[in-house]
Amino acid sequence: MTTPLTFTSYVRADGVSVLVATGEVDLSNSADFAAATDAALAGAAGRLLVDLRGVEYLDSAGLNELLIRAGRLEIVAGTLLAPLLTISGITELTTVYGLTGGGPTGVVAPWAAEPPA
């Protein structure tokens, strides 16, 4: 039985590339997570926004993939992952949105108005 994890990627109207992950990331599928992120990075014009709001579980293996790519991506996450991301220190390496509970998901969020640096 594999851990459920799906990806969707798109380019927002303002040109930002977004990778949306849904499911759980653990030791068994962190390689898939890494591959999907790399693919999205390859297709992205600038920095990649990784949307983790649909991720119910993220362990250190998944975190590690994000950390080694932190210079090239930004993250949006829900409050569920907030302690984890804060503890891991990734918030000091790149911008992580939504940790304190941002606007509604799906539509344009407040952070989206700002162009990625």
Binding site: D59, S60, A61, L63, N64, L67, I68, P83, L84, I87, S88
Partner: peptide
């Protein structure tokens, strides 16, 4: 990254 798991446990 290997030691990160333990650090996470200790933090949580």
């Amino acid at each position: 990254h290997r030691g990160r798991g333990l650090a996470l446990m200790r933090a949580l």
